[in-house]
Amino acid sequence: MSPDAPPVVALDGVVKRFGERVAVDGLAFAVAPGEIFGLVGPDGAGKTTTLRMLAGLLPPDAGTIRVADTDVVAAPEAVKARISYMPQRFGLYEELTVAENIRFYADLFEVPRRVREERTDRLLAASGMTAFRAFRAGKLSGGMKQKLGLTCALVHTPDIVLLDEPTTGVDPVSRREFWAILYRLRAEGVTILLSTAYLDEAERCDRLALLSAGRVLHCDTPAALKARMPGAVLAIMTGSGRAARAALDGQEGVGRALLVGGGLHVVVDDPARRIPQIRASLAERSVPVGDIAAIAPGVEDVFMALVADASPR
């Protein structure tokens, strides 16, 4: 990753409308070569539309998009040999086998036979799918399908990989393998853009753009975003989470509360001051309470604080 290098993906003032609806509204961000860049946001924030425009599948209504030194708006076809795009829906041929699907995509990108064979072996081994070569794609589990999709996307040598929610419905073990492949790619200098609804997964990205209503609200590293989180998260152990939440509702310095197994997570401005205050008000309402401790916020907490508060709901 070299942040000083000229960006390999750059959007500026991008607008996309579907009829009356504005899906993407003046979007701008840039991705450095060799970065893993995550697009995070609620449904309808414009993640999929953005990735489709980057892949040259949808023309924007306004703005400029440059991908791998190509003006995607003017020459959408020119960018296609340089990228790999993996749509959200499994896009492979279910009646073809794993090996046949891979070969099909290799041929479309005119990958020489020897390179294809070598890379297919390596990718299948990395995702633990070597034994499934002759399986029909339609018979694979959801996680395997996603890994096959990634293998097909990587069988040529893309400069940029665009992945739309690649790990939805994938179990944690497969997801780790998936990420191991992505990190290996990054080490080879490939730039990766992905969208995700899994916020624990977003922490694995180098940088994140938090999207809302077709705009970038925040764009930074996960650590920097977490540092921007106003206040701290407290874990309150209690058997009656709802009662505790009701007791704390509207208290000074106490923000959003989330029910979790065995208790409650609340956002507070100042833990040192608020912990005694919380204990007192819970005792007042005779809500039984155990430990109260500050915990490290996750990207999800940050997301809720930065995006949920920004979006009109």
Binding site: K80, S84, Y85, P87, F90, L92
Partner: peptide
């Protein structure tokens, strides 16, 4: 319908 086209049109095929 099956979603395979979205992937196909992201390749250089004419």
């Amino acid at each position: 319908e099956r979603g395979t086209m979205e992937l196909l049109i992201s390749t250089p095929v004419t």
